[in-house]
Write a protein that binds this DNA or RNA. Structure first.
Lengths: 284, 284
DNA sequence: AGCGGCATGTGCGAAAACTCACAATGATTG
DNA sequence: CAATCATTGTGAGTTTTCGCACATGCCGCT
């Protein structure tokens, strides 16, 4: 009798995520279940697949071979999930949308009511995470990204652009001389982002007084008079507690890319949501 | 959360086998389980995948699409099973061998004891069926066939040849004039087999007095004096109750092919069994 | 060095899945 | 046309599987 495919599924998830807990999260089960199913697979194959180490599991040679053989199976499983979504008739069902947090909160979320009015049966699940969701693994059906993705099988389309400017509280700007201005930046994990490098260039020798991974926090800090933050114009312009400062040092802008998997691009449901998203970012 | 792979496995089995019962047999579960898992898959995908008809299930359009998408997944699963077998270390474990019934009974089974003496840890599961087992689906690890297979990924090697001759009981041959001889043949499902066509050519207008799908039955009938049967020489020669008749009309012989999947050909365990099988048929 | 976060292992209770046995239905065959 | 075979459907009982809660252990940070 054949191997249990669920055992394989759990094992592949463990191999990809590295830990029982992470694998359990992606599978929507308890970590104990993952451990049990992997043990079951080891017994069914009579192979030792993992070394139980303290903090994380390590695959044995046999385990690596099995994962390699199982890679195509997982890809096929993802293709099936996409096929299921693509088969959904009409304009009803759940669509997973991934977008950078600020885009999600400021441009999309406020206008979801419009979509719901037009297509009451569409339920959007909006994932506002900085981590780029994998469309291949169907962590999302549609994604908004700030750069063109390079992955296989994905269709990307430039749908908008927005500029960054320096924003601060009006009182702060009035009271503070140019050379004493403080700056608000991303944390160092974003050092490679263009807007971060642009901000640091503008700041020059002047101090960075606050770092946050979250743009909303930076905006709030700027609003309270802590310093200047590089914010998207769609965020800064609409905030009555902030004014735009002409930085003098040129401006920077980023593109917005709409990304969808090839398998889903013709699905009515997905197309409807894509149209809605384009409307959201066109105004930026 | 992702689809349950076991649901997919059961659905694919149902689609391939056509009935709940047959799918349940290949999966080693009860037919109720297959029905329940397919229902679960329908609920998870929110698609109607099968039409419950009286005698057998019929796939809907969505079901067919899903099966098509799942085909690669099943292929990958079979590849994994082969990979598991190929990973087995040393000369121990179970090997599934498929061979035509007579070859299995007469050439292989009597010599299994030799293999067991040489490699005590090898357990052979010998499947003596006329139906050709699929090596791709891992219904068998090694197969002996009477013709070269055309399937992808399989390695075939000619390992022997055996001739057919007419055999009958000595008394029957002495007492019966040539033109009154009766013949013993396969049933009509084997009409395309060369030995069957050869027998009918020899028989000419003379009657076929008995048909059986089983060579052993034909031999037994011939032994009892019912008529002449076309038997492999390795079978007829070793039977003291039968004598070979020079048919005059030329002879016929069939090749024996040893077939193994490419993924398994280098596995020590499989190689050992292959060597044993070659030894079995070389004497034919 | 102490502490917080994250990961794994264990025991138990609850829930779900599976098997078994039997009934019903429809197709095929003599 | 009856009978038989194979399949699907239903209900009951039992096994198994799963999730929760807690304990333990390791790493990184202060």
């Amino acid at each position: 009798m054949p191997l249990d495919w669920t055992d394989l599924q759990h094992f592949v998830a463990l191999a990809r995520e590295g830990t029982l807990s992470a694998a359990a999260r992606t599978l929507g089960v308890d970590h104990v279940t993952v451990a049990r199913r992997v043990a079951a697979l080891e017994q069914a194959t009579r192979l030792k697949l993992v070394d139980r180490r303290a903090r994380a599991y390590a695959l044995t040679d046999d385990g690596r071979r099995l994962v390699q053989a199982a890679g195509p199976m997982e890809q096929a499983a993802f293709a099936i999930e996409r096929s299921v979504v693509a088969s959904r008739p009409g304009l009803g069902g759940e669509v997973l949308v991934s977008a950078p947090p600020t885009l999600a909160n400021r441009l999309i979320a406020p206008r979801l009511v419009e979509l719901r009015r037009q297509h009451p049966a569409i339920a959007i699940k909006l994932i506002g995470e900085k981590r780029i969701a994998s469309l291949n693994r169907r962590e999302a059906d549609i994604a908004l990204r700030l750069s063109r993705p390079k992955e296989q099988g994905l269709i990307a389309r430039k749908v908008g652009r927005f500029g960054f400017s320096l924003y601060g509280a009006p009182d702060y700007l009035k009271e503070t001389p140019q050379h004493e201005l403080g700056f608000i930046a991303y944390d160092s994990s974003m050092d490679t982002a263009p807007q971060q490098q642009w901000l640091k260039m503008i700041a020059g020798p002047r101090p960075i007084v606050f770092q946050s991974s979250d743009l909303e926090s930076q905006a709030a800090a700027a609003r309270s008079g802590l310093g200047l933050a590089a914010l998207p114009d769609f965020l800064g312009q609409s905030d009555p507690g902030l004014v735009r400062l002409d930085s003098g040092g040129g401006n920077i802008s980023r593109e917005i890319w709409l990304v969808v998997h090839r398998d889903l691009r013709r699905t009515p449901l997905v197309r409807a949501v894509m149209g809605f998203l384009i409307g959201c970012v066109a105004s930026a």
